[in-house]
Design a protein around this nucleic acid. Sequence first.
RNA 1: GGACCUGUGGUGCAGCUCGGAGUGCACGCCGGCCUGUCAAGCCGGAGGUCGCGGGUUCAAAUCCCGUCAGGUCCGCCA
Length: 580
Amino acid sequence: MIKAAGLRTHYCAEVTAQLVGEKASLCGWVNSVRDHGEHLSFVDIRDHTGTVQIVTERNPELRTESAIRAVGVVARRPEGTDNPHIASGEVELREASIELLGPAAVTPFTIGGHTEVEESTRLRYRYLDLRRERMQSNLRTRAKVNQAIRTAMERQGFCEVETPLLWTPTPEGAREFLVPSRLQPGNFYVLPQSPQIAKQLLMVGGFDRYYQIARCLRDEDLRADRQFEFTQLDMEASFVTQHDVRAFITEVIVEVVRATRGAELEGIGQITWFEAMDRYGVDKPDLRFGSPLVDLTELLGQGDIRAFAAPCVKGIKAPTSEPLSRSRLDALVERAKSLGAKGLAWFRVVEGDGGATLESPLAKFLDEQRTAAFIEALGLQVGDLALAVADGWETAVKVLGQIRLDLGRPGLDHSELHFLWVVDFPLFEGLDEDGNPVSAHHPFTMPNEEDFGLLDTDPLRVRSQSYDLVLNGWELGSGSIRIHRGDIQAKIFEVIGIDPDEAASRFGFLLDAFRYGAPPHGGFAFGIDRLAAMMSGEENIREVIAFPKTQSGLDPLTNAPKPVAQGVLDLVGLTVKARR
RNA sequence: GGACCUGUGGUGCAGCUCGGAGUGCACGCCGGCCUGUCAAGCCGGAGGUCGCGGGUUCAAAUCCCGUCAGGUCCGCCA
């Protein structure tokens, strides 16, 4: 590391036995003061690398968290006084003088040490919270993620291009933040929900491998994994297939894991959307644990058992070894009903006369042979719990998939990383109020060529050339090959019920651009906040964001949003209506 | 828009079911002692409108209603 020429000669972690006898100048904050009378005081100085003990005279002015500079000589500690818990524990700074650079008032909470502090308090004093080890570590991990992304993208020949923050309203997708125009009063820009259209224009513009670490803004409700503003790796490439795009992104992920964990990731597995839904009941399966759904339609859905008379019967071996009480089971049944199932059947596997057998209100409907087949199909052993849902395919897999997650999550290992590609998403999901199919991704997503014929006959069965990247059950990002041909785009607009005039008014500039030699292209974007959170072992992206908003969209540090003066509103031609 | 959880000295909690004086614990803060501690220790002290408003009651941190704030989730996030 290059030595700063300023007030500091070393960081705390560099102060080791190798420096004994040398003069050192350390800068940082007072972590703790231990006075032993007037003539002996231990002051721990802290920077982001660690702490060093300074031996000095008592100074009542030196309050915890004051910014200081300490100049002294690195010395071996007396026999028997080493501190094995810190890197500098064999030495201390002696003959030291401490310069008080920035005296500190009493802080609202402890910065060093192990005190838990409520998140709302941490956010109100975020500048102090940032000094704590957790945030120092998380934000530095995030910086490594950014660095690794740039390294991998540059290595693959991608060119970083910035796109506008002041963009044009597009009445599709997420709600946008409005920005009033001063020079054109009554007109508005919006902040981009993503650089999607801009990057497709860059493809027409010949930047055939583009990337950007891009801020995106969406005026939607906040969650543990969602803030108004978030950061994506946004990328797009021309003359590529979906396999190429996934290979580019896989390379990035490998580099990120290398930079943050020092581990070599052996590629990323792949599963189709249908298989993910059919086996795990979600399009972002968490594969840190097993318990896939098993099809029991043939075994149980023959109609002879009323509870299972349905088009689809799915079962799982519960992903928990904890024996569940009758009331817990009843709660599970209620949970299944609230998720839309008609019911939930449970079976405890117990030791019977002739080996394992089932204990359940429904056990009496299963003869010996079907009991054995049931146990076999789910791979059950004595002590296991099995659950089954009978319904339409979609309801059966979704309900059981959610219950699988409810039961499986508590035992998860947070240091484990399970990346997964989910491919072959359907092009449309459901119908709108006019009976037209709704684009699952966005209307520029290329259909799977094998399914072109279905666009007219059975559009809901058309697969798309789109793909998601999943990490431990979190959707990290998604991408697709885009439509670059006018005839296919016109066909899609026709299917989803957008007439040519409407298409022209909404996306005219993009469709115009595509008339001048549009290359085939596709891309991807993934959430850096979510990736950084996972790499930091955090379950909330606020922990990897320096200054986040609360769930109601307030900034606890600045108290934004706030009213503005009438004169400011006049400039942009706005009037604020009285609140109801 | 909806469901659930939380709100008690500066910080983190307990107390709330079963109403009875602001009661307790840990950290921090203030004063004193202390020449080898390291989350220093010992002695003493200060600090609270129990988020806010209303109701029930002889009596409310505790029960009821409303409201605000924080969190988790549903809706929403092409």
